[in-house]
Design a protein around this nucleic acid. Structure first.
Lengths: 339, 339
DNA sequence: CTGAAAGCGCTTACAG
DNA sequence: CTGAAAGCGCTTACAG
């Protein structure tokens, strides 16, 4: 089961390796029809397939990119991966998927391995723990793109939601429906993960704009497994919020689990908006008002820019590309003005 | 920004390339402490990183595997990918993820690209359209594993749910609750996709075992966008089923969308069990009785066997590894015996 | 204990 | 229009 190489093809076709290589790379400019034919049939007869590893070594590119997601269990990550995969497929690129699990150590290991494997570029949801590593990559002009998150002080093209706008959309809707005590819950705020921080900031700003009071007890970032307890505590405040913004799909899920287990009713007992348009939003009871982010678009544009960078080898100034959230009104927000 | 190679390290450390290579591969048997130190500091000073492409070319292995999923939007696929990724990470393997979109042409392209890139092995959810290609890989003893699906006549290790058992679990539960007219809906049956076919077969067998009549109109495979209409037709049969088994998460979703839009009530108007324990099953109204498959386990064991195969280079007889489904009783099945 | 040499399978100027 | 040669960055017997 010896592997067939370009040498075997050359021998069978009665030409040199160089000529076969020309053929493989479609440099037909000066190739006779006859030669072409002979090579073609030799390839077929031997079942020859180019060894991309050898080609990559020589050409110094692998047509492979790496994607490091923070947490593959997030629905958003899956959609991003899918979108990236789609555009890479069109350009005959492959994607190596890595799941950093929000662990900077894992992220670091992946970055190093990916670079050792000579991937042509990387798209990352940075954990925030490897600034130096990324800094080095930027220095050497390595094709790098961030998705969903920014890192302070790093000039990297980044694709993400306009998170503040997302919170504002929610607060505005709550306000229009007559809510005055509004809460927000996100996942843990350590390491200043961009969407969480920005969503809380946007939330505060929106409150101001609507002349609503801000209460520290109404805006919290909890570790994943403390969300339910934290939410319970907020509900039992002296003057609890009548409306909550769930910072992402996982938070939303925890809130829904809690309300289910306690027999609390949405939107009678409290109103709810979730950021991320979860799959079951419109079949839930009640249908959930959500704020959708264009995950597919984000992934697509990130991949397209990365490939463009790889191919052009130049790097214009890094920009932050923001995407507009969309409020999808369903029935999880109670209209306090009607009662 | 010249890349630093083993030659640079050798020069700086004042040794030969061979010795550096020995060092990199941890063959310290005959290496003096002094040499070791010098190489180590040279590596640090230059910021040297092994080029895996070059190593791969020489060693003829890439420590990379390919995963071709049929449809990445299925939750099951994501979980499988995650599990594979986890075990690969432990073994310092990387995974290239490909989404065949249930399209044999795309699948073929991916297989060829993956092999051209010299991945050490492949885990696939085969579409069923590339038997010859797979056959060839088996002939040459290429490390290959199937997940979720089998291909007639191919001797490949496969990891999948005991699909018949899954249907039987559902039918048995329906029967215990007094249902006599039971229906099943799966996605399209063209190309004989294993889980769909087996779930319908298991369904029929279970009906027999419970002495329940089988009605062709009660067991259907629909194209995705015809599920809602198809379901509607089944509901409006002269003597419609009182209970339905949804063949997978996507079917379940369509049924739920339909019932929502028509204001039909579960389990009052019909009872429902879904195969795949969807994320929202226990927070849905009513909580959905489901049949869970151990996706994580399936992916884990598949990856472990693949890596074992890659490392050992021998291939014991291919087996089909079945996993037990689990019935999770919640509230979407009405007890007809109590009324 | 360490080095020189060959080779993995390609591509790419360059020569003719 | 085609071929000989060098080289991509490693590893691996083998020699000493």
């Amino acid at each position: 089961m010896k592997n067939v190489t370009i040498t075997d093809v050359a021998k069978l076709a009665g030409v040199s390796k160089s000529t076969v290589s020309q053929y493989l790379n479609k440099r037909f400019d000066y190739m006779s029809e006859d030669t072409k034919q002979r090579i073609e049939s030799a390839i077929k007869e031997l079942g020859y397939q180019t060894n991309f590893i050898a080609r990559s070594l020589k050409q110094k590119r692998t047509s492979t990119i790496g994607v490091i997601v923070a947490n593959i269990l997030h629905n958003f990550s899956t959609q991003i991966i899918r979108a990236i995969e789609d555009v890479c497929n069109e350009h005959d690129f492959h994607v190596i998927v890595c799941n950093a699990d929000d662990d900077p150590e894992k992220e670091k290991k992946y970055i190093n391995m990916l670079r050792a494997k000579q991937v042509d570029g990387i798209i990352a949801f940075p954990t925030g723990g490897n600034t130096d590593l990324y800094e080095g990559m930027i220095q050497e002009n390595y094709p790098l793109i961030f998705v969903d998150r920014l890192i302070d002080g790093l000039q990297v093209d980044a694709f993400l939601l306009d998170n503040k706008a997302a919170s504002k959309l929610a607060v505005q809707h709550f306000a229009q429906m007559g809510h005055k005590h509004i809460g927000i819950i996100t996942t843990s705020l350590i390491r200043n993960v961009t969407p969480r921080v920005e969503r809380i900031e946007g939330f505060k700003e929106a409150l101001l704009e609507h002349s609503l009071p801000f209460n520290n007890e109404y805006a919290k970032g909890f570790n994943f497994n403390e969300i339910q307890n934290g939410f319970a505590r907020m509900l039992s405040l002296a003057n609890p919020p009548t409306a909550f913004l769930a910072g992402n799909d996982l938070v939303l899920m925890e809130i829904l689990k809690f309300t289910k287990s306690k027999g609390i009713k949405i939107p009678d007992d409290f109103s709810l908006i979730g950021i991320d348009d979860v799959s079951f939003a419109n079949i839930y009871h009640p249908p959930l008002t959500t704020i959708a982010q264009p995950a597919f678009e984000i992934g697509k544009e990130a991949a397209e820019l990365l490939i463009k960078k790889i191919k052009s080898k130049k790097s214009p100034v890094a920009k932050t590309h923001r995407f507009e959230p969309k409020l999808i009104i369903r029935d999880s927000v109670k209209n306090l003005k009607k009662t």
